[in-house]
Structure formats: structure tokens, C-alpha cells
């Protein structure tokens, strides 16, 4: 059975792939977006490694894009979420939602003010 759980970083990367869409979801853009969305810096290598791992698990698929003059004529590898990846992502969100729904309201208050 393949590993279908998602780590936090993996989940964010997948979400970013979805957000960036067909033209923009390549390693550099994703890493850039990750930085601007989270404020944390992540190297392109780290993102790329996660992307290729997710592709290996079948959550993402990739294709070489068209050549552009911008990067010395080199092509980009564009990632898209597969149907299976979509399912895993949804499952992950649903699981967390269900957890939140069981969470006592009072505790939320505590959490908010406690720290």
C-alpha cells in the first residue's frame, strides 16, 4: 500500500501547485510563492525534491512546458495535481475539518488567549 498521508510541507506544496495553475506551477515559482505565502524561506531544491517525491507517489504529474527566452531558452517542468492527488488533498482537509468539529469551543478560547 502506498503512503497516502501528507506531511505539512507536502500539503502546502500541493496546495500551491493547485493555486498556481497550469502555466506557473514549476519549482522556482512554487518556492517563491511558498516564501511569500508563509514568510518562511524554502530552497528550490527542497521544493523540487518534494515535488518529485509527490510525483513518485502519484499525487502529481508533470510535463515539460514550452521554451521561453527568459531562462536561456530552457523549458520548465510544470506540475499538475492528479485526480488521486486531489482525492488525498480533499481527504486530508476533511479529516482535519472533522477533528475541528469535535474540538470543544471553550478550548478554542483557551488556545487563543493562553499563549
Amino acid at each position: 500500500m502506498k503512503e497516502t498521508r501528507l506531511g505539512e510541507f507536502e500539503e502546502v506544496v500541493m496546495l500551491l501547485v493547485g493555486i498556481l495553475g497550469d502555466e506557473e506551477a514549476y519549482a522556482f515559482r512554487i518556492a517563491d510563492e511558498f516564501k511569500s505565502q508563509t514568510g518562511r524561506s524554502g530552497s528550490i531544491g527542497a521544493v523540487h525534491s518534494t515535488l518529485s517525491r509527490l510525483e513518485g507517489k502519484g499525487f502529481l504529474s508533470s510535463e515539460m512546458g514550452k521554451a521561453t527566452a527568459a531562462r536561456g531558452g530552457r523549458r520548465k517542468r510544470i506540475y499538475t495535481i492528479t485526480a488521486f492527488g486531489q482525492k488525498v488533498l480533499t481527504a486530508s482537509r476533511d479529516f482535519k475539518m472533522s477533528l475541528w468539529q469535535q474540538y470543544p469551543a471553550l478550548a478554542i478560547e483557551k488556545l487563543n488567549y493562553g499563549m
Binding site: 522556482f28 530552457r74 520548465k76
Partner: peptide, 14 residues
């Protein structure tokens, strides 16, 4: 090679 060099170059010029 192609995609990584491309990404890194894009990053560099940015």
C-alpha cells in the same frame, strides 16, 4: 539539468 538550471537562473536574475 534543463529545468533545474532554468529555475536557478530565473531565481538568480530575480
Amino acid at each position: 539539468a534543463e529545468e533545474v538550471q532554468g529555475d536557478l537562473e530565473e531565481q538568480f536574475y530575480r
